[in-house]
């Protein structure tokens, strides 16, 4: 179906509404407001995570210490420091002993908590300027 160009000519005369001038600025403000709120939420969440991971580090470190003491890891380390020559001559057996006595679970807990903590601190620092930045001109 083809339509005559007279219809196009007709609609060129249509009265269109003038766009209210405030709409553009209103949208820009709304975007800025949304970004600020979102940054505040993320910042709060990351600060909370930092607090939780720091709090969890204390028992994690205590657990590592207890685990290391019970498994004999601490004793082996002090032996390495005090009598290194005999350790070096029996390094294969000593390595196996160290590996067996490693406080694995506690170490994993500490490393994980440290990683999450530092990551959250980094992200918190990233969000701080977004929370306080002035409106985009």
């Amino acid at each position: 179906m083809t339509t005559d160009p007279s219809y196009k000519k007709l609609f060129d005369m249509i009265e269109t509404e003038q766009v209210p001038t405030h709409i553009f600025d209103a949208v820009v403000s709304r975007i800025h407001h949304y970004r600020t709120i979102r940054a505040r939420i993320y910042l709060t969440a990351h600060i909370a995570l930092v607090a939780v991971t720091i709090a969890s580090l204390i028992p994690a470190i205590q657990y590592v210490t207890i685990e290391a003491t019970h498994s004999g890891f601490m004793q082996y380390i002090s032996l390495l420091v005090s009598d290194s020559s005999s350790i070096i001559s029996n390094w294969k057996d000593f390595s196996l002993l160290i590996a067996e006595s490693l406080p694995i679970l506690g170490s994993i807990a500490c490393i994980t908590a440290l990683f999450i903590c530092t990551n959250s601190i980094y992200r918190s620092l990233k969000y701080i300027p977004k929370v306080t930045i002035k409106r985009y001109a």
Binding site: M1, T3, D4, P5, S6, K9, L10
Partner: peptide, 12 residues
């Protein structure tokens, strides 16, 4: 209807 008639010129 396949093609629509043009608008009468007096409309304009």
């Amino acid at each position: 209807i396949k093609d629509l008639e043009p608008l009468p010129p007096e409309i304009f």
